Simulated assay, not measured.
Amino acid sequence: MSSERLRRPAVPRSLRLGETTVTYLPDGAVQLSPLGWLRGSTEADWRRYADHLDADGYLTGSIGGLLVERDGRALLIDAGVGPVTAPAVPGARVGALTGGGLPASLAAAGRTPADIEAVAFTHLHIDHLGWAAHVPAGAGRPFLADAPYLFAGPEWRERAHAGDEGPGDAVLAALEPFVRTVTDGEEIFPGVRVRLGAGHTSGHTTYEIDGGDRRLLAFGDVLHSPVQVGHPEWYADADADREAATRSRREVIGRLSEPGVVGFGGHFADVVFGRVAPGQDGPVWQPVDA
Protein backbone atom coordinates (compact mmCIF):
# COMPACT_ATOMS: atom_id res chain seq x y z
CA MET A 1 0.00 0.00 0.00
CA SER A 2 1.08 3.63 -0.42
CA SER A 3 2.86 4.79 2.72
CA GLU A 4 1.36 8.24 2.14
CA ARG A 5 -2.10 6.79 2.79
CA LEU A 6 -0.91 5.46 6.15
CA ARG A 7 -0.07 9.00 7.29
CA ARG A 8 -3.02 11.06 6.10
CA PRO A 9 -6.68 11.22 7.22
CA ALA A 10 -9.18 9.26 5.17
CA VAL A 11 -11.10 10.75 2.27
CA PRO A 12 -14.66 9.65 1.43
CA ARG A 13 -14.64 6.06 0.13
CA SER A 14 -17.41 3.64 -0.80
CA LEU A 15 -17.75 -0.11 -1.20
CA ARG A 16 -20.55 -2.15 -2.71
CA LEU A 17 -21.68 -5.20 -0.73
CA GLY A 18 -24.33 -6.87 -2.85
CA GLU A 19 -27.42 -4.66 -2.59
CA THR A 20 -25.80 -2.55 0.15
CA THR A 21 -23.44 0.41 -0.24
CA VAL A 22 -21.20 1.55 2.61
CA THR A 23 -19.54 4.97 2.53
CA TYR A 24 -16.98 6.44 4.90
CA LEU A 25 -17.98 9.99 5.92
CA PRO A 26 -14.98 11.98 7.23
CA ASP A 27 -15.44 14.28 10.20
CA GLY A 28 -11.84 15.00 11.22
CA ALA A 29 -8.69 13.39 12.54
CA VAL A 30 -6.58 12.91 15.65
CA GLN A 31 -2.89 12.36 16.20
CA LEU A 32 -2.07 9.36 18.41
CA SER A 33 1.26 8.98 20.17
CA PRO A 34 2.55 5.56 19.05
CA LEU A 35 4.19 4.75 22.40
CA GLY A 36 1.59 6.51 24.53
CA TRP A 37 -1.40 4.98 22.80
CA LEU A 38 -0.29 1.51 21.74
CA ARG A 39 1.09 0.00 24.91
CA GLY A 40 3.57 -2.82 24.53
CA SER A 41 5.20 -1.29 21.48
CA THR A 42 8.78 0.05 21.66
CA GLU A 43 10.89 2.72 20.03
CA ALA A 44 12.56 -0.03 18.00
CA ASP A 45 9.15 -1.12 16.73
CA TRP A 46 8.38 2.37 15.53
CA ARG A 47 11.65 2.64 13.69
CA ARG A 48 10.46 -0.42 11.81
CA TYR A 49 7.00 1.04 11.24
CA ALA A 50 8.09 4.60 10.58
CA ASP A 51 6.00 4.64 7.39
CA HIS A 52 2.90 4.78 9.64
CA LEU A 53 4.01 8.00 11.38
CA ASP A 54 3.35 11.56 10.26
CA ALA A 55 5.93 14.34 10.13
CA ASP A 56 5.45 14.98 13.87
CA GLY A 57 5.93 11.31 14.78
CA TYR A 58 2.26 10.49 15.43
CA LEU A 59 -0.10 7.85 14.10
CA THR A 60 -2.93 9.39 12.09
CA GLY A 61 -6.36 8.46 13.37
CA SER A 62 -9.25 9.27 11.07
CA ILE A 63 -12.57 10.21 12.70
CA GLY A 64 -15.96 9.93 11.03
CA GLY A 65 -18.96 7.71 10.45
CA LEU A 66 -20.05 4.89 8.18
CA LEU A 67 -23.13 5.42 6.04
CA VAL A 68 -24.97 2.19 5.18
CA GLU A 69 -27.51 2.39 2.35
CA ARG A 70 -29.90 -0.21 0.99
CA ASP A 71 -33.19 0.01 -0.92
CA GLY A 72 -33.31 3.77 -0.43
CA ARG A 73 -32.87 3.48 3.33
CA ALA A 74 -29.92 4.78 5.36
CA LEU A 75 -28.21 3.87 8.63
CA LEU A 76 -25.26 5.70 10.20
CA ILE A 77 -22.67 3.92 12.32
CA ASP A 78 -20.91 6.36 14.69
CA ALA A 79 -21.12 10.14 14.50
CA GLY A 80 -17.63 11.62 14.53
CA VAL A 81 -16.31 13.98 17.18
CA GLY A 82 -18.23 17.12 16.21
CA PRO A 83 -17.04 20.69 15.61
CA VAL A 84 -14.06 20.74 17.97
CA THR A 85 -10.40 21.64 17.65
CA ALA A 86 -7.65 20.92 20.17
CA PRO A 87 -3.90 21.48 19.84
CA ALA A 88 -1.24 18.89 20.58
CA VAL A 89 0.10 18.87 24.14
CA PRO A 90 3.75 17.76 24.44
CA GLY A 91 4.03 14.38 26.13
CA ALA A 92 0.32 13.54 25.91
CA ARG A 93 -0.90 10.29 24.37
CA VAL A 94 -3.13 12.27 22.00
CA GLY A 95 -1.88 15.07 19.74
CA ALA A 96 -3.89 17.56 17.70
CA LEU A 97 -7.59 16.88 17.23
CA THR A 98 -9.90 18.36 14.60
CA GLY A 99 -13.52 17.68 13.77
CA GLY A 100 -16.58 19.20 12.16
CA GLY A 101 -16.72 17.77 8.65
CA LEU A 102 -19.43 15.14 8.96
CA PRO A 103 -22.41 17.33 7.93
CA ALA A 104 -20.64 18.30 4.70
CA SER A 105 -19.64 14.66 4.12
CA LEU A 106 -23.23 13.55 4.61
CA ALA A 107 -24.48 16.19 2.18
CA ALA A 108 -21.84 15.19 -0.39
CA ALA A 109 -23.19 11.62 -0.16
CA GLY A 110 -26.62 13.00 -1.08
CA ARG A 111 -28.16 12.61 2.36
CA THR A 112 -29.63 14.82 5.07
CA PRO A 113 -30.02 14.03 8.80
CA ALA A 114 -33.71 13.36 8.16
CA ASP A 115 -32.75 10.48 5.84
CA ILE A 116 -30.98 8.58 8.63
CA GLU A 117 -33.39 6.08 10.17
CA ALA A 118 -31.05 5.14 13.03
CA VAL A 119 -27.58 5.96 14.36
CA ALA A 120 -25.79 2.90 15.68
CA PHE A 121 -22.79 3.37 17.95
CA THR A 122 -19.82 1.12 18.50
CA HIS A 123 -19.21 2.59 21.95
CA LEU A 124 -19.51 5.60 24.25
CA HIS A 125 -16.33 7.52 23.50
CA ILE A 126 -16.47 11.15 22.51
CA ASP A 127 -14.84 10.71 19.11
CA HIS A 128 -17.76 8.48 18.09
CA LEU A 129 -20.62 10.50 19.59
CA GLY A 130 -19.98 14.08 18.48
CA TRP A 131 -22.81 15.00 16.13
CA ALA A 132 -25.36 12.95 18.06
CA ALA A 133 -24.99 15.32 21.00
CA HIS A 134 -24.05 18.59 19.26
CA VAL A 135 -26.86 21.13 18.95
CA PRO A 136 -26.24 23.51 16.01
CA ALA A 137 -26.84 27.19 16.67
CA GLY A 138 -30.54 27.96 16.61
CA ALA A 139 -31.55 24.31 16.10
CA GLY A 140 -32.77 23.48 19.60
CA ARG A 141 -31.94 19.77 19.23
CA PRO A 142 -28.95 17.64 18.22
CA PHE A 143 -27.93 17.45 14.58
CA LEU A 144 -28.91 13.76 14.26
CA ALA A 145 -31.94 13.79 16.54
CA ASP A 146 -34.37 12.72 13.80
CA ALA A 147 -33.14 9.16 14.39
CA PRO A 148 -33.01 6.83 17.41
CA TYR A 149 -29.55 6.23 18.89
CA LEU A 150 -28.72 2.54 19.17
CA PHE A 151 -26.35 1.31 21.88
CA ALA A 152 -25.66 -2.21 23.08
CA GLY A 153 -27.43 -2.79 26.38
CA PRO A 154 -24.22 -3.33 28.43
CA GLU A 155 -22.65 -0.21 26.93
CA TRP A 156 -25.52 2.05 27.93
CA ARG A 157 -25.96 0.45 31.37
CA GLU A 158 -22.26 0.97 32.12
CA ARG A 159 -22.18 4.50 30.65
CA ALA A 160 -20.79 5.99 33.85
CA HIS A 161 -17.65 3.85 33.43
CA ALA A 162 -16.61 4.77 29.89
CA GLY A 163 -13.21 6.08 31.03
CA ASP A 164 -11.29 9.24 30.20
CA GLU A 165 -12.56 9.18 26.60
CA GLY A 166 -16.17 8.84 27.73
CA PRO A 167 -18.77 11.61 27.64
CA GLY A 168 -19.57 13.86 30.55
CA ASP A 169 -22.96 14.22 32.14
CA ALA A 170 -24.06 16.94 29.72
CA VAL A 171 -23.42 14.75 26.66
CA LEU A 172 -25.14 11.75 28.25
CA ALA A 173 -28.15 13.94 29.03
CA ALA A 174 -28.26 15.10 25.41
CA LEU A 175 -28.15 11.51 24.14
CA GLU A 176 -30.58 9.89 26.59
CA PRO A 177 -33.94 10.97 25.08
CA PHE A 178 -33.04 9.27 21.82
CA VAL A 179 -31.40 6.06 23.10
CA ARG A 180 -32.69 2.59 22.31
CA THR A 181 -30.68 -0.38 23.51
CA VAL A 182 -29.98 -3.38 21.27
CA THR A 183 -28.91 -6.95 21.91
CA ASP A 184 -26.24 -9.28 20.59
CA GLY A 185 -27.30 -10.75 17.24
CA GLU A 186 -30.12 -8.26 16.70
CA GLU A 187 -30.71 -7.13 13.11
CA ILE A 188 -30.99 -3.34 13.27
CA PHE A 189 -31.14 -2.65 9.51
CA PRO A 190 -31.44 -5.01 6.53
CA GLY A 191 -28.35 -7.22 6.69
CA VAL A 192 -26.80 -5.39 9.68
CA ARG A 193 -26.40 -7.27 12.96
CA VAL A 194 -25.03 -6.40 16.40
CA ARG A 195 -21.96 -8.38 17.57
CA LEU A 196 -20.85 -7.67 21.12
CA GLY A 197 -17.15 -7.82 22.01
CA ALA A 198 -16.25 -6.28 25.34
CA GLY A 199 -12.74 -5.08 26.08
CA HIS A 200 -12.31 -1.56 24.83
CA THR A 201 -15.49 -0.66 26.74
CA SER A 202 -18.10 -2.72 28.60
CA GLY A 203 -20.40 -3.20 25.63
CA HIS A 204 -18.20 -2.37 22.66
CA THR A 205 -20.03 -3.37 19.49
CA THR A 206 -18.97 -4.56 16.06
CA TYR A 207 -21.57 -4.30 13.31
CA GLU A 208 -21.64 -7.15 10.81
CA ILE A 209 -23.01 -6.14 7.41
CA ASP A 210 -24.02 -9.03 5.16
CA GLY A 211 -23.76 -8.25 1.47
CA GLY A 212 -24.27 -11.73 0.08
CA ASP A 213 -20.94 -12.54 -1.56
CA ARG A 214 -19.11 -10.19 0.84
CA ARG A 215 -19.62 -9.16 4.41
CA LEU A 216 -18.12 -6.24 6.29
CA LEU A 217 -17.16 -5.95 9.95
CA ALA A 218 -17.32 -2.36 11.24
CA PHE A 219 -15.15 -3.08 14.26
CA GLY A 220 -14.93 0.33 15.92
CA ASP A 221 -12.01 0.58 18.34
CA VAL A 222 -11.18 -3.11 18.56
CA LEU A 223 -8.19 -1.95 16.47
CA HIS A 224 -6.89 1.61 16.20
CA SER A 225 -4.14 1.18 13.61
CA PRO A 226 -3.35 -1.21 10.74
CA VAL A 227 -0.10 -2.07 12.50
CA GLN A 228 -2.07 -3.89 15.22
CA VAL A 229 -3.15 -6.53 12.70
CA GLY A 230 0.33 -7.97 13.08
CA HIS A 231 0.56 -7.07 16.78
CA PRO A 232 -2.78 -7.75 18.51
CA GLU A 233 -0.89 -7.84 21.82
CA TRP A 234 -0.39 -4.07 21.55
CA TYR A 235 -3.35 -2.78 23.51
CA ALA A 236 -4.78 0.71 23.39
CA ASP A 237 -4.13 2.81 26.47
CA ALA A 238 -7.89 3.47 26.55
CA ASP A 239 -8.85 -0.22 26.65
CA ALA A 240 -10.95 -0.80 29.77
CA ASP A 241 -10.15 -4.52 29.98
CA ARG A 242 -6.84 -5.19 28.26
CA GLU A 243 -7.09 -8.98 28.24
CA ALA A 244 -10.63 -8.96 26.86
CA ALA A 245 -9.66 -6.31 24.30
CA THR A 246 -6.75 -8.44 23.11
CA ARG A 247 -9.06 -11.45 22.75
CA SER A 248 -11.45 -9.30 20.72
CA ARG A 249 -8.61 -8.15 18.46
CA ARG A 250 -7.50 -11.70 17.80
CA GLU A 251 -11.06 -12.77 17.07
CA VAL A 252 -11.68 -9.90 14.65
CA ILE A 253 -8.33 -10.43 12.90
CA GLY A 254 -9.25 -14.09 12.48
CA ARG A 255 -12.63 -13.18 10.98
CA LEU A 256 -11.00 -10.69 8.61
CA SER A 257 -8.70 -13.44 7.36
CA GLU A 258 -11.69 -15.43 6.08
CA PRO A 259 -12.61 -15.31 2.36
CA GLY A 260 -15.11 -12.61 1.49
CA VAL A 261 -14.79 -10.70 4.77
CA VAL A 262 -13.82 -7.01 4.66
CA GLY A 263 -13.18 -4.73 7.60
CA PHE A 264 -13.92 -1.09 8.37
CA GLY A 265 -11.43 0.51 10.72
CA GLY A 266 -12.66 4.02 11.34
CA HIS A 267 -9.32 5.24 12.74
CA PHE A 268 -7.17 3.55 10.06
CA ALA A 269 -5.73 6.70 8.42
CA ASP A 270 -6.68 6.62 4.70
CA VAL A 271 -7.01 2.82 4.55
CA VAL A 272 -10.31 2.47 6.40
CA PHE A 273 -11.56 -0.45 4.27
CA GLY A 274 -9.42 -3.56 4.04
CA ARG A 275 -8.91 -7.23 4.73
CA VAL A 276 -6.28 -9.27 6.53
CA ALA A 277 -3.80 -11.05 4.26
CA PRO A 278 -0.66 -13.10 4.89
CA GLY A 279 2.51 -11.03 5.02
CA GLN A 280 6.20 -11.80 5.15
CA ASP A 281 6.28 -11.56 8.95
CA GLY A 282 2.66 -12.32 9.78
CA PRO A 283 -0.80 -10.98 8.93
CA VAL A 284 -1.07 -7.50 7.41
CA TRP A 285 -3.83 -5.05 6.54
CA GLN A 286 -4.50 -4.93 2.81
CA PRO A 287 -6.61 -1.96 1.67
CA VAL A 288 -9.79 -2.68 -0.30
CA ASP A 289 -11.00 0.19 -2.47
CA ALA A 290 -13.70 -1.45 -4.58
Rank of each mutant, 00 (worst) to 15 (best):
L97V: 15
P232Y: 07
P34G: 09
P113G: 06
A104F: 05
Y149R: 01
W37P: 00
G138S: 03
H161W: 04
S41M: 12
P113L: 04
L256P: 00
G220A: 14
V81Y: 01
D27F: 02
L75V: 07
D54R: 04
L102I: 02
R255E: 15
A108F: 00
L144H: 03
L66P: 02
G100E: 07
V171I: 15
H224S: 12
P136V: 00
G260C: 08
V30N: 01
L97R: 15
E258A: 15
F178I: 00
I126M: 04
L256E: 09
L144E: 01
E155F: 09
D115P: 07
G101T: 05
G91A: 13
L217R: 12
R5Y: 03
A10S: 15
A132G: 06
V94A: 09
D127P: 00
L59C: 14
D54G: 08
V84H: 07
V194H: 02
G265H: 07
F219G: 07
P34C: 11
F178H: 14
E155C: 09
L25G: 04
V68R: 01
V22W: 01
V271Q: 11
L76G: 04
A290M: 03
Q280I: 12
V94T: 12
R275V: 13
A277L: 14
V271A: 06
H161E: 12
D164C: 01
E186Q: 14
P190A: 10
A160W: 09
G265R: 02
G279T: 12
A174K: 06
A114V: 03
P90M: 13
L66R: 00
E258S: 14
H125E: 12
S225L: 13
G265C: 09
G282T: 01
R193L: 03
E19I: 00
R16K: 11
A145N: 08
F143Y: 15
V276Q: 08
S33R: 13
G36N: 11
A92L: 06
A29Y: 02
R157M: 05
F273K: 06
A238L: 07
D115G: 02
D184P: 07
L150S: 03
A132Q: 10
V119N: 03
G263K: 02
S3Q: 13
L216N: 07
V276P: 07
V276R: 06
L256I: 04
Q280P: 11
R7G: 00
